[in-house]
Amino acid sequence: MRDFSLTASILKRNEEGQSVFIPYMMAGDGGLDVLHERISFLEEAGADAIEIGIPFSDPVADGEVIQEAGSRALKNGVTLRKVMSELQAQLHSIPLMIMTYLNPVLAYGVVEFVEDCELAGVKGLIIPDLPHEERTLLSNALIGKDIALVPLVSLTSSPERIEKIARNAEGFVYAVTVNGITGVRSSFGSDLMDHLTDLKRVAKVPVLAGFGISTQEQVRHFSSIADGVIVGSAIVTAFHEENLEKIQSLIKAGRTTVSQ
């Protein structure tokens, strides 16, 4: 198993007895010129890494909030290429991850995209429509690079699949906490606890929970079960409404002591 700096920074936080918090932001929502400002804000607020979403014409894994943010970004003319060049213009010390649908990467050219990720200091990739079986499309170009191709595991994944995916996982395992798309949820299924516990048992890398986590209470809850949380829609909404305090309080809620 290769060592990724993304994994190392998560483990470091966990070893300090704390859970990891990764916010998601839609690149170009509010204009590309606020991208660096928002990254710095999240870093200063205490985020451990940042997931940067790329707008897409057909975001099938996203709920209303992120779809709308994507539409706003598309209206601003934002593309994967523009985001990558913006990121290369100013580097950050916080690990950055790119979350994009597959087709913009294919249009970009896989090899060129990976090169540009390196230049931009991108440490991880999340491609929601690239399941385990198809991952070689990207992973061949990632050999020898410090860029983790982070896999998603869902509640519907069979135990055999979970084991296969978790064992081969790079960076961390992204545990999807609901059957559904991204977005705010008021409740979660009762089988979720067992699912996360099983995952942590088989995974060789940290397990982070995401999808539907939007309140401080939920952040605290999942931070105590998983190695960390990913919060998307709530952050996107807060940025859109310029409610920066809400983002700070969510990140603060993630600073729960990890149960080991």
């Binding site: 099938v60 399941p131 198809e134 998603l152 869902s154 519907t156 699949r161 995916i165």
Partner: peptide, 19 residues
């Protein structure tokens, strides 16, 4: 990959649907 017609086809879907 699975379900290939030459280089076309495949299963590019969210993990939740793989099962």
């Amino acid at each position: 990959g699975k379900g290939r017609y030459g280089r076309f086809g495949g299963q590019y879907v969210p993990e939740t649907l793989m099962g």
